[in-house]
């Protein structure tokens, strides 16, 4: 079974009289343990598609399954529980809790989303701190570390619950290109190490090269798909 199955999904936003078609009949499937990127200009629907996969929003039409669950049918509370169990999130603006230290930010999902016994919690947090190279900064607060470091912490926070899927909407948009590469490579390393599927969006062509599979979006439609080391430019 594929991790993500998207069939003929459309999404419309209605604001008063105006209806915006953010997605127009998109279909694709994503395997477990893959490293996938959605690329396209601003307004092409990248965020919309990530929100749908991430159970933050519901499609207007079409079928959407994550880990075999028809997520379109979940209630608000069920969606929240589903996200907490299956999905990790990385944000463009890092979105760490300013009142919590690096360590506590990573620990947060284990305390507030999944309740884990304290020894196991400590082991996991310490391990991820090592993995993302932030062990020596663990007692600092977010405003005491750099953007690249914040995003490393965010990667650790997204992975701490052992999710099957990590979604990252433009995770490098606020980073310089060197740091951006470092963060993408960190994500890749995590994917290899934990077998987690990473799906991220970007409009940065340089970063795209790091993805194994790239979906090109324009005007709410998938216009191209590229598989690394394989048949490029195969239309969908």
């Amino acid at each position: 079974m594929k991790l993500i199955q998207v069939k003929n999904v459309s999404k419309e936003y209605r604001t008063g009289e105006i209806t915006v078609k953010a997605l127009r009949g998109v279909s694709f499937e994503i395997e477990r343990a893959s490293f996938v990127s959605f690329v396209g200009p601003s307004g092409s629907g990248k965020t919309t598609i990530l929100n749908l996969i991430g159970c933050l929003d519901k499609p207007t039409e079409g079928e959407l399954k994550v880990s075999g669950t028809d997520v379109a049918g979940l209630s608000r509370k069920e969606s929240a529980a589903f996200r907490g169990k299956h999905i990790g999130f990385i944000f463009q603006d890092f979105n760490l809790m300013p009142v919590l230290t690096v360590y506590e930010n990573i620990e947060y999902p284990l305390l507030m989303v999944q309740s884990l016994p304290s020894t196991e919690r400590k082991d996991r947090v310490e391990k991820l701190l090592e993995e993302v190279g932030m062990a020596d900064q663990k007692n600092k607060y977010p405003d005491q570390i750099s953007g690249g470091q914040k995003q490393r912490v965010a990667v650790a926070r997204a992975l701490v619950t052992n999710p099957e899927l990590v979604l990252a909407d433009e995770p490098t948009a606020n980073l310089d290109s060197e740091t951006a590469y470092a963060v993408i490579n960190l994500m890749k390393k995590m994917k290899d190490g934990f077998g987690t599927t990473f799906v991220f969006s970007t409009h940065d062509q340089k970063i795209v090269g790091e993805a194994e599979i790239v979906y090109f979006l324009a005007d709410g439609k998938l216009v191209d798909e590229k598989v690394k080391g394989g048949k490029n430019g195969q239309p969908v």
Binding site: A80, G84, I87, F89, Y108, V113, A158
Partner: peptide, 8 residues
């Protein structure tokens, strides 16, 4: 943020 990552 906390709602997105699954806080009930």
């Amino acid at each position: 943020t906390i709602a997105a990552i699954g806080t009930l």
